[in-house]
Design a protein around this nucleic acid. Sequence first.
RNA 1: GGGGUAGUAGGGUAGCCUGGUCCAUCCUAGAGCGUUUGGGACGCUUUGACGGCGGUUCGAAUCCGCCCUACCCCA
Length: 477
Amino acid sequence: MQEESVSLPPKEEFSEWYNDILWRAEVMDVRYPVKGLYVWYPHGFAIRRAVYQILRSLLDRDHQETLFPLLIPATEFMKEAEHIKGFENEVFWVTKGGQNELEVPLALRPTSETAIYPMYALWIRSHADLPIRLYQVVNTFRYETKHTRPLIRLREITSFKEAHTVHRTWEEAEKQVNAAIDLYREFYRKLCVPVIVSKRPEWDKFPGADYTIAIDTVMPDGKTLQIGTVHHLGDHFSMTFGIMFEDEKGEQKYAQQTCYGISERCIAALIAIHGDDRGLVLPHEVAPVQVLIVPVIIGKRREEIMTYANGIRADVEAMGLRVRIDDREIRPGAKYYHWEMRGVPLRLEVGPRDLDGRKVMAVARDGKRSLLNREEIRERVVELLREFNERISESAEGRLRSCIKRISDLGEIGSALEKGVVIVGWCGNYSCAQELEKKTGASVLGSCLDAEMSGEGNCTCIVCGTAGAHALVGRAY
RNA sequence: GGGGUAGUAGGGUAGCCUGGUCCAUCCUAGAGCGUUUGGGACGCUUUGACGGCGGUUCGAAUCCGCCCUACCCCA
C-alpha cells in the first residue's frame, strides 16, 4: 500500500505510465492552463538540452545554425497551394496589433518554409552560392484538434529542429535526403532508440514535397510514433518563391530543395522506449546527472566518508562527466529511488565498508552491480557507462524486432497489430491501402527502406494479389 | 470529428441524487524539532482541497451553463 502511493503505474498501462512519469521524473508539467501547451521542468529541460546538443553537433558538421522570425505574413504563407492545403486548418493567426486590425494577418509558423524561402530567393544568385544547408531549433504552432499529449501532440512544438537545404540538381538534393536519413539514424543510435525508415505513401507526404521519408519507432503499446521526416521538395517551392541561380553556362535555373525535421517527440520516444516501472532510464550522454554519488553515513564517520566521496567526485568530474553528490539528510534508499526515477545511469555508493577497503560500489540504472577499486574509478566509470548504453540499446532493439511481424494472410493482421507493426505485401495503390486501413483501423506507413525488413525479392499485395513490394502497416500516434 | 466516464490537499477516496453544521478521511508531501542513515526511517507540532470561469441562492464540493484536463470507445 505504501509503495503504491509513491511508485508509477506499471508500464503495461502505458498511457497512464507515460502521463505519470512526466511529472514524477520532473520532465514536463502539464498543468499550464492552455490546451496543448506544457512546461518544461528544469530536469526535463536539461535532458532536452543534452539531446539537442547531440543533434546540433551532428548537424554542425556541414550545416549552419540560423534563426528566422516566428511570424509569417499571410501573403507569403499563401503562395504555395499544396502547402496551404496541408496546413491551413491548423494555423494560429495574429490578426490584431493592439486594438487595430492588421492589414496583413501574420501566421504563427507551423513550419518555416514560407518564412525562409523568400529570403533564400534574395540570398541565392549563383551556382557558387550552393549548396546551402541551414537549420534552426524553434517553437512552432499548430492548432491541433485531436487529443493533445505532452511531447507528442502539441499546439506549441517547443523544440522543432528544421533543416532547409538548397541544391543545384534534383540528384544532388536526393543525396542530401540520404545524408539526412543517415544523420537521423546516427542521432537515434546515440539515443539508443531503434527506428524504422520508410517512404511515406503519395497521399501522406509533406504538402509540397516530391516525396517524404519518415523515421518511426514503436512505442510500448505497439503504436508507432513518427520521430523524424525528410522531404525532397524538388523545385515546387523554388518556383513559387523564385529561388533561382545562374549555372556555369550562364543560364537561370530553379534550385532543388530539401527539408527535414525532428521535434521533441524524440524525447517522448527516449522516455517511452527505455523507461521502466521505476522511472526514467536514460543513455548516459543525455542524462542530466550521469554519475550520482551516495555517501552512506553511519555514526561518527561522517567527515571521513564525505572527504572520500568528494575525492571521488573530483575524479569523475575531471573526466568531464556530470556528477552529483546527494548529501541530503535522508536514508540512502530514499535517494536511490529518487534518482532512479530521474534516470541517473550510474550510482556510486560510498560507505564505511568501501572506505576501509578503498572500494566503491557502482550500480547501473538497470541493476548491474560492480565493486570497484578506488584507484580504477576513472577507467571503470567510463567503461560502465558505455556498457550500460550497449545493454539498453540492445534490449530496445530486441523489443522493436519482437513487435514487427511479417503477415501474408489478411485474417492474421488484426491480432498482430495489437502488439506492434506488420509488414505486408502491397501493390502501391491507394484503393488497396484504403481497404486495408478500413479493415484494420491501422495506417499504411509506407514502403520499407531497410533491406532486412523488406526482405528479398518481390511479393504480392495482401489485398488484391497483384505484384507488389513490402509495406509497413501500423497504428500511428 | 462523434460518444462515454471522470476531475475533491502532492497522491487515493467519502460526501453530490435530497444545497447549510462543529473536526471529512487514509497515504504522503511541505515547514519545524528530536532520534536516525548499506534499498522508500520514526515520534511530536503544523500547513494544505473541492479542475476553471460565470449563474441561481441568504448560503454551492453539491443545482444550472460554458470551458479546461484525463482515460476509454467509435470514425
